[in-house]
Design a protein around this nucleic acid. Structure first.
Lengths: 339, 339
DNA sequence: ATGAAAGCGCTAACAT
DNA sequence: ATGTTAGCGCTTTCAT
């Protein structure tokens, strides 16, 4: 393995000069620089990031901890974050937490091992009561809906507004008995999550339209998976629950619902209209294609990386944590066609 | 930041003893161990991986470089690899290459920066002519179909056999004019890739059944995306190409094809039967659900990690590179129903 | 413009 | 069973 010292010897200079060349310091004579660069190329030299990090405390790598790596939504998000980080000269390492609180905390503390300059944490397990534990000694940006007003910068979706818009869209298209498929909703107001926030938007839209809230239309999923969506849709149809629209907490769930309704012989959009949330790539290609709410993922990623870079670069500066809520659009496709 | 030295002082022992406790060395008196562990907990100590790595050359982290992180197939694979690595006490960092040759090489050389103990590289850009460049000075396992007989351990899919089986399945179900949708196929025999290998299987099956090869039935995709699949399917239907079955190079392409055929008013499976390759999670939930070939991803992941761990642990040992081809099954669903 | 010295936090090798 | 010494590869500081 070639070290900086080897290069220095080969180029007939000191290690310091090589270091200065590598880090683009001024005050290196062009001739010297050329000689050093040649030696580096000849010896196929690569900096040892561990050694550099030991001195500088920087690795040029940020971590991205997500619940799942085979969930299409997180793939979408990760791609946007990688692109945003790349523009700022940073690498991204993705790690999986399995949506478990302990792993989310582990991701935090392991990142402190200084393999990362900062961490973007997508949390689904941690809640408001864990907010203080986010105060790690490395920069952290929170991506998600579980903790608001926490001690770190935070990027979130426009859950309530977008859900109201999605539900409103179904109402506009003539739906009167709209089901909402969601995860469990906590009892206390501090327990925020995608389900409770999107439920609030759903209820607002119904209220705004003068439609009654019907508890039987709010159905609970064991997980945000296609399997759970399909199963629940089949059950709802089998029990002859009267509904003409479905707002699903995520597109993945909606994909399952489309399948489940097909199994039950329910036609979409003629009998029941369906709308999801996320606008994952697949949604446009389903048959019928899936209407959905599209948060601006690119902007979310940009802001998350911006927040992180700012904290990384101004280490001491304890500016108050910021919050960013992304804009959204309603994407109308076949699953809510007709009226 | 708490260092090992701080812990040593707090516990009234030397740094070495703390190190021995951390690394579970024998010859530490239980009482001492307890005292050290208490000090570690009290001071909230974390090892500095960079420093440890600088000494030992190990990080406990392996890299996984994939073309895309929002491709459902790689998500599936990554999940399996993370699970396999976890069982062996290793962390996994996922990086995106964007399917570009230069980035795949960059992933290799960056990993040499010693952030990783080894790298699992899923290559689609590198070819046989680049095989020698894989001989990095860190352990590498190749996952993919582009290079066979290269200088490193290699895990691949049963492309030819599985494709023959998929095509055979369509024939069994009564198809006689079976289209094959694939990427570009190289001119020289060294240019292997998923398209050329799966094409070989497709042709074998037709030959075995005594069906003619028809060049017009082998169609080329600009990329392995839903968009490309949908577009091509619409074109084929629009040009009144006569076909009653489609074998798609991946499930993702097949998803697009299902959509494109629906756009063209072609019914699946009544008018045309469709089969894919990969068995991604979505395939079971499409309408119609997608028949496909399912390589054993779990086994692929296990072997890839096994290969890598073996190389990491026996650094000097230059055993000949091994190759592992995963087994597969044909999963029959609605898209090839009836006859 | 270049170099020498020191040390980041840790552990292998060798004492004791 | 525990401690001492030395050094991994790099950069910060200060000198020349």
């Amino acid at each position: 393995m070639t070290t900086l010292k080897d290069v220095a010897e080969a180029a007939g200079v000191s290690a310091m000069t090589v270091s200065n060349v590598i880090n683009d310091h001024p005050h290196v004579r062009p001739a010297t620089r050329t000689r050093v660069l040649a030696a580096m190329a000849r010896l196929d030299y690569r900096v040892n990031v561990a050694a550099r990090n030991l001195r500088t405390g920087r690795t040029g790598v940020i971590g991205l901890a997500v619940p799942e790596v085979n969930a299409t939504y997180y793939g979408l998000l990760a791609t946007a974050i990688i692109a945003a980080a790349e523009r700022r000269g940073l690498r991204v390492c993705i790690e999986r937490t399995g949506a478990r609180t302990e792993n989310e905390l582990a991701a935090l503390s392991r990142s402190r091992n200084r393999l990362y300059d900062g961490l973007i944490l997508t949390t689904v397990g941690l809640g408001t009561r864990d907010a203080q534990r986010l105060k790690a000694d490395l920069p952290v940006v929170l991506l998600g809906e579980r903790i608001f007003g926490g001690p770190v910068d935070h990027v979130a979706m426009p859950n309530v507004d977008a859900s109201r818009a999605a539900t409103h869209h179904l109402i506009e298209r003539g739906c009167r008995r709209i089901a909402f498929l969601r995860g469990t909703v906590g009892d206390t107001p501090e327990d925020v999550d995608v389900s409770s926030l999107r439920q609030a938007g759903y209820r607002q839209a119904l209220r705004d339209a003068g439609l009654p809230l019907d508890a039987s239309l709010e159905q609970c999923l064991p997980s945000f998976t296609m399997a759970a969506g399909a199963e629940l849709a089949r059950t709802m149809a089998g029990e002859r629950l009267d509904f003409d629209g479905v707002f699903c907490v995520t597109d993945t769930v909606a994909m399952g619902v489309l399948r489940g309704l097909a199994d039950a012989g329910v036609r979409v959009p003629q009998d029941v209209k369906v709308i999801g949330f996320d606008n994952v790539d697949e949604s446009a290609y389903l048959v019928p294609s899936l209407s959905t709410v599209a948060p601006d993922h690119t902007m979310m990623a940009e802001r998350a990386v911006d927040f992180l870079v700012r904290r990384i670069e101004n280490e001491g500066d304890m500016a108050a944590p910021e919050e960013f809520i992304a804009p959204y659009t309603v994407v109308v496709r076949e699953s809510t066609e007709g009226r």
